Simulated scan of single mutants.
Amino acid sequence: MSSLEIATFRKTPLAWQSVARLIAVSALFWAVAAGILFLAAPGIDTYPRLLVFSECSGLAILGFAMLLRPSRWFPKINPTIGWLVTGVIAIPAGYVLGHVIALLALGEPFRLLSPGNDRMVPIIFTVLIAGFGLHYFATREHLANEAMARSEAQRLATESELRLLRAQLEPHMLFNTLANLRSLVKEDATQAELMIDQLITYLRSALAASRTEANTLSDEFVQLRAYLEIMSLRMGPRLSYRLDLPADLARLAVPSMLLQPLVENAIKHGLEPKVGAGSIEVRACRADAGIEISVTDTGLGLRPAGRLQSAADTTSGSYGLLHVRERLRAIYGPKASLTLNPQTPAGVCATVRIPQ
């Protein structure tokens, strides 16, 4: 268990289970250690007594280590030195406390050293075994920290790609909208005013989303509504839309602008090139494994490249889909997914699944 896990084990049931497993493995480890000492130094004591002393000392050492590792002083020093300090404090303190507990359990008077010529053997053996155990945990923590650092680097890279994607998509959308707005000012001032209001809402939401890594589904849907309203004003009767967000999911946190590339992809590659009217529906609902958010359109449907089988496929639409998949993988791991399914008679349904 890493120091981060130890520091937070009080907060979640899963962490409590992790601590319970750690104690069970430690108890088994010290039972085996007592057997090794019994076989390596015959005659030093009976196995049941060695088992009691070994378990009490080992679990006491583990307890001291668990209390020391989350200390606010340790993050300020080198991890290797931190584990050395932990061993210097936890091993002798745990040995003494464990012996006290074992003697109390056995109903014997307190003594730190066993009588006889081999009285130093249990101490040396305990130090060696405990040092080995702490080295194991130090190595495990180091590997966990490296994995966390890699995950954080991947997340930062993905967020950088998100900013690049926004920089590519938003000016294109903005310029087209302004061009339409210029025509509307002369032809229909009321529609022009409505488009300006929706453009302000969209840009305000996009700006807020660019400054945070997570957003509520309610805010995401507000931004999507503004974007779709702008597109419906541009496309006229060729585009209709529907947004369905249950009230109990409104405050759910999701990555900022996670759905925007899916909606833009549906319009740009499905509905805009299509002759005639089309529609798009964005719907969120609860599922067995978490939350499902679907973006369904009645556009042209999937092209071979639209299935995005290869990461090398970086056309504008597929790049947005690839980016969504990478963000889901970086933030939620393999439990999250984005799938594309053809609709009948035409269109595509893009479904995002987020675990809870």
Results as ranks from 00 to 15, higher is better:
F175R: 07
L164F: 13
Y136F: 12
V100A: 01
Y95V: 03
T177F: 03
H135P: 09
S71C: 10
L68I: 14
L67C: 03
H142C: 06
L84F: 07
T126P: 09
Q198F: 01
T80N: 13
N180E: 15
Q154E: 11
Y136M: 08
V88S: 03
Y136W: 12
F132L: 04
R119H: 07
I89Y: 00
E141H: 08
R140K: 12
L174D: 03
F132M: 07
A93N: 04
H142E: 10
A149H: 15
L164E: 11
L97K: 07
I123M: 04
L194V: 13
Y136H: 10
L134A: 01
F137Q: 03
Y95M: 04
S183A: 09
L112D: 02
S160V: 08
G116M: 02
P115A: 09
S160A: 06
T86A: 00
T126H: 10
P70M: 05
F125E: 04
E159S: 04
P115V: 06
E108H: 10
T86Q: 04
S151M: 09
A90F: 07
P79W: 14
L104E: 06
A65C: 01
A153H: 11
I123G: 02
V88G: 00
I124G: 01
L128I: 15
N117Q: 15
Y95F: 09
S183K: 14
G107W: 14
E152M: 10
M66R: 04
M148N: 13
H172E: 13
A102L: 11
I91M: 02
M195V: 02
L194D: 12
I124K: 09
L143R: 15
R155Q: 15
F74R: 15
W73A: 03
S71H: 13
